[in-house]
Design a protein around this nucleic acid. Structure first.
Lengths: 156, 156
DNA sequence: TCCACATAATCAGTACACTGACTATCTCTG
DNA sequence: CAGAGATAGTCAGTGTACTGATTATGTGGA
């Protein structure tokens, strides 16, 4: 069996893409706040007071990882983690003023980063790229978790 | 500043894509060997006896990470790590028979996995997707490292 | 030849990301 | 109301992935 050409393997390319993105992120957006951390802040800007599990689900982090990320954000005073009075299992997350301010500062930079990241593509190719990325990711996530289904076929 | 729509952010999508891929990999290809580990084996099948640094460069792993991955592969007897006699700094990597056999076994499965991974796209879209992934990754890697340049513009 | 510089690998520290086991809490049903 | 099952979070363990500091070795020029 000869060696395979990994440049035709989407998984391999996905890993390289993500690594390249992380690098760009730290140089252009922030050295202190990572992309997953920003995703959490961004979710809470949209809807403050969500519980930890829901935020994790929205940004694509499992329960263990979201716990770690939240711990770090809380340690830096960017959000507060509060036990839900009505449901003692839940941890409700609330942005601090500092968290909101930081999100505002970084938002503009993420736009600039996306531009640089997608610079090698034409405007047409950019939207194609985003669409294909989304379709493949969505489909693969559904393979794993046939629960959160599209509006048809409500599981038994 | 309102919340951003991260589904238009290629970096966020890249992370989700990679996560989804890892999941598929462990269910379809192997529970024991990870995708980066397979990439190392695959490189050595193509050219046995490369040194650790070169292999890392080929598969896109930095010196620290390739060292970890190699340590694990060596611990499982899939390759041997030998100090280069001619250059005492280098560690030369050689596949064992078991390593070669495992690569052979897994190669077919990676093809099946790629098919499932790309199933939501038409044949046309698949090649577009791979091409765009490659162009964006290559460009971003060059931003970081202006050394390994294309055949024009040899750096000073 | 010796010393400055470069290079390969290692090490410590940080940050995702996942699984499987466990705890605490809630809810529903008998 | 009690116990069964579901749910949210934690914890331990494994595996990338990166930076910055350190160590060992090679190489080229004064």
């Amino acid at each position: 069996m000869p060696a395979l050409d990994l440049s035709t393997h989407p998984g391999h390319l996905a890993r390289r893409l993500q690594q390249a993105h992380t690098l760009l992120w730290t140089t252009i957006v922030s050295e202190d706040v990572t992309s997953p951390q920003f995703a959490v802040l961004n979710t809470l800007v949209g809807e403050d007071g969500l519980d930890q599990r829901t935020v994790g689900e929205r940004v694509g982090l499992d329960r263990s990882t979201i716990a770690e990320v939240v711990r770090r954000l809380a340690a830096r005073g960017l959000l507060d983690k509060i036990r839900d009075a009505r449901d003692g299992r839940r941890a409700v997350l609330r942005l601090t003023g500092e968290g909101t301010a930081l999100h505002r500062r970084l938002s503009g930079r993420t736009a600039r980063m996306n531009q640089i990241f997608l610079a090698p593509l034409s405007p047409q190719e950019r939207s194609t790229f985003l669409e294909l990325l989304q379709r493949v990711s969505d489909a693969a996530e559904e393979l794993r978790d046939p629960a959160a289904r599209p509006p048809d076929e409500p599981a038994p």
